[in-house]
Amino acid sequence: MNNNAIVTKDLTKRFGDFTATNAITFEVGQGEIFGFLGANGAGKTTAMRMLCGLLKPSSGEAKVAGYDIYTQTEQIKKRIGYMSQKFSLYEDLTVKENIRFYGGIYGLSNRQIKEKTRQLLARLQLEKEAGHLVSSLPLGWKQKLSFSIAVLHDPSIVFLDEPTGGVDPITRRQFWDLIYESADKGVTIFVTTHYMDEAEYCNRISIMVDGKIKALDTPSGLKKQYNAGSMNDVFLQLARAKS
């Protein structure tokens, strides 16, 4: 249990009399690709913000990378990477400057930043664009760069909030190649998406409905359980079932 990247028990967040996240309990193993699904407004973002140490829970417990989300949020922030759908790099800095900036934020030494920059540019084949403003890159490249920067400091967990929205189908798959590669190195991936084919790429999936986790299993397990041909069918059955 201590080896798990994320452990939550009855994690709850209320805003006034509205319960956004309602007693969710789950575990994510180290190196697992965990899909965190749910309809708009189901409570995914709230749960994710608590796990990242950005929002204090109303009740319940959770540990992320072994740290408590009430008392050790600063340690958590150092051990995680985060990438949102809304592009989170600085558009008016160059590719290289962005890498340098985030490397500094994460406390990497100059030598580490130099080495990481070289590796990252080679991996993404962005050497020629290193001096270009990020604003000049196509969306798909930005998203790949954004992911690579989110794992620059070798975090044990990376949170991805709809990382592939609007990205073309080839780049979307290249993005998942990066995810697989990181998971293969032992990084835990916690990802939300509206593409149900991407849900299939996850080791396990949870589906949130109205603040609660309604289902949690492997994609094939869920399809069997709901007698569905695809994850899209599973999702529609669950999200429609609400009163």
């Binding site: 708009n40 759908q85 929205g165």
Partner: peptide, 10 residues
């Protein structure tokens, strides 16, 4: 339908 969940999209 961009950024909208599969149920609302349908």
């Amino acid at each position: 339908t961009t950024g909208v969940d599969p149920v609302s999209r349908k």
